[in-house]
């Protein structure tokens, strides 16, 4: 279905790690997308500038790539819009409740060897694997 791409995976991953390292070295912040976005959605957050800038950078990345001829990302999704909406709510609620997602717990948390993050990553990976198994091989199969 999809090709295994370890080289571009490692290279892209290294860039993600570089961004996380630079954000800490330059601004003293953890590059956790959930925490960065979630902070903007709380009324009592004072430090909004760097959060907006980081999110703008994320959204600008494919626009910059488009200048060099890359197509804008319009991923195909097999799930219906209702399922997409349910998944979105679960991701938003769950990442805020658990204080982090793949970037904050998965990348930065593992890099800090944080017990909390390693436990969280193990749980959300397992839950996602079980969900995919049910959707693809129990319901879909």
């Amino acid at each position: 279905m999809h090709d295994f791409t370890p080289i571009s995976g490692l290279a892209g991953g290294a860039l993600i790690g570089l961004a996380a390292a630079l954000l800490m070295l330059l601004t003293g912040r953890i590059a956790g997308v959930t925490g960065i976005v979630g902070g903007l959605l709380q009324p009592d957050t004072a430090d909004r500038g760097w959060r907006i800038a980081f999110i703008a950078g994320l959204i600008a990345a494919p626009l910059v790539a488009a200048l060099f001829g890359a197509p804008l990302p319009r991923p195909t999704m097999n799930a219906s819009l209702v399922v997409v909406a349910i998944a979105g709510v679960l991701v938003g609620f769950g990442t805020r409740m658990g204080n982090g997602c793949t970037s904050g717990h998965g990348v930065c948390g593992f890099a800090r060897l944080s017990g909390r993050s390693i436990v969280a990553t193990f749980i959300f990976m397992t839950a996602a694997i079980v969900t995919v198994a049910i959707v693809r091989h129990v319901i879909g199969g």
């Binding site: 991701v91 769950g94 990442t95 658990g98 969280a120 959300f124 839950a127 996602a128 694997i129 969900t131």
Partner: peptide, 11 residues
Amino acid sequence: GALLFGIGWGL
């Protein structure tokens, strides 16, 4: 939270 996130991510 990690459990809910994982389910949504897997969907």
